[in-house]
Design a protein around this nucleic acid. Structure first.
Lengths: 273, 273
DNA sequence: TGTCGTACGTCCAGTATCGAACATAAGCAC
DNA sequence: GTGCTTATGTTCGATACTGGACGTACGACA
């Protein structure tokens, strides 16, 4: 599958169209998942003392978080949106609330997902390690909101805020382990096991049991043919672990899915929580 | 191939036997590759103002390096030695001079190399990111010397020495990119291309064109069967890019090998140097 | 000098995935 | 509703690798 085709597909989602049609100022409230206008959402964020669903930010001492808040901007991320391309300078980092971002290593016209970022993390970790350009494509895989911060602000914050530094470095380590496990997983495990793992990882970061994902998109993430995903997905459906139709996948049986996934799911989960 | 077999094989090397037979105090002088007794080598290291072949250390301001030197211990690493196992607490970090260390993600009874550490880096990077246990097996792949430091000393140094912190975080990022590229490479590229890449990466970190590596060891690194490596290696030999016999591989044509390797070699090299 | 362990060469049938099609069906625009 | 686009189902032969096996030959050591 060509990248162009994959991009065209994923950028055609209804949310994207809605936002491009003029509701650009709408974001999703991290607290309850409801759509808000941006000014409303910002008020909500600062009035509550700045509660956020992002766990990296939530783990900071309140005082540190309050100081960061001035630099954080609430944004809506739409399915298919590309935050970084390989080689591009990173302008912002993103702390997802309920958005989900996939990190893809692109080789020739193929890609493989090598990292997943949800409310537990941050997209743009390269900045915290002293790099300034992205090496991977970062693509929004689940529509939702995120708090973003300019690169310069992050650098500033990293200098002064020790807890943030500690959190981000620890998080970078989990991304390293995730990438290494993914390498081995991709080598040794079959499409069906890998698909189950992937669905679980996404499910962990999603608000609901219903995921908006086509077989073609999944094939792009897993680095396999679309037909291969159809085979694996219909096997999981026959086992009543999932249910799907036209780009909507529902997780029916989490325990069963965990049993169907390879050990890699558990290993990464144990470290990264 | 079982891990036990692979370990038995690699730990049978002549260097290992020599060291276990009583020449334990011998290390290889980072400056010229000659064998020295430990006390000699230590004197050499401190008398020259502490020149070292390790590039991470060499990149530090002289004053910082001099301070670190007190905590650094020169050790010999022998082919097949295992520095860390998954789940183990990291006691020391290692800055190789001419030793080479492979990082392997172990899954069931298979393994895949997901990182390579030579004079450009450090084994035990997890410590610099706030973790205390290894997630991968670290196995010495090329006999040589390294400077090692206790975990506690590294933490101490990281607090006070900003250049060291910066270097190590930047290095951690290159390891992240390396792991992610390896994931994609392993997925999309054939054994022959991957073998060529692997030989180049090792060659970059070795002192000589002659590498001590059996097909079985390579198979373990690449996560494929030994027979698969034999096929790929003999293809490269037919093309006069390498030459080998009984565990000794010689690089004959570096340019040719680069052409035979996949783009992944160039990509990682461009970032990590 | 002969023996034995190790390294490499090669073959087999079996499996997973590939690339490329073509077919069916669901939803959206008009 | 009609027609178009998109999503999924399914097939084909081709390829790359698997697990397992057996043979050959080098070289260290008794």
């Amino acid at each position: 599958m060509s990248v162009a085709r994959a991009l065209r597909l994923v950028t055609g989602g209804p949310e994207r169209r809605a936002i491009e049609a003029g509701e650009v100022d709408a974001v999703i409230d991290p607290a309850n998942g409801r759509v808000l206008l941006l000014p409303e959402a910002k008020r909500a964020l600062s009035s509550t003392g700045g509660e956020t669903a992002n766990r990296l930010l939530a783990a900071l001492p309140r005082q540190d978080y309050q100081r960061l808040l001035a630099e954080l901007e609430l944004v809506a991320l739409a399915y298919g949106e590309v935050l970084y391309e390989p080689g591009e300078r990173i302008r912002h980092v993103y702390f997802p609330n309920d958005a989900i971002v996939s990190l893809l290593t692109v080789v020739q016209d193929k890609a493989l997902e090598v990292g997943l970022v949800g409310r537990e993390g941050m997209a743009g970790i390269a900045l915290a390690l002293g790099a300034e350009r992205a090496q991977e494509r970062a693509m929004v895989q689940g529509t939702g909101s995120a708090l973003r911060m300019k690169a310069a602000s992050l650098h500033e914050a990293l200098e002064h805020c020790v807890p943030l530094r500690r959190e981000l470095h620890r998080y970078a380590y989990t991304k390293l382990v995730e990438a290494r496990q993914t390498a081995a997983c991709t080598r040794f495990h079959g499409v069906e096991e890998r698909l189950a793992r992937w669905l679980l990882m996404t499910h962990d970061r999603a608000r609901a049991d219903r995921l908006h994902l086509t077989h073609e998109f999944l094939a792009y993430m897993l680095g396999v043919r679309r037909a291969g995903v159809t085979q694996a997905a219909s096997a999981l459906q026959r086992r009543r672990l999932i249910d799907y139709q036209r780009g909507d996948i529902r997780v029916l049986d989490r325990k069963g899915l965990e049993a169907a996934a390879c050990v890699c799911y558990r290993i990464v989960k144990a470290l990264a929580g």
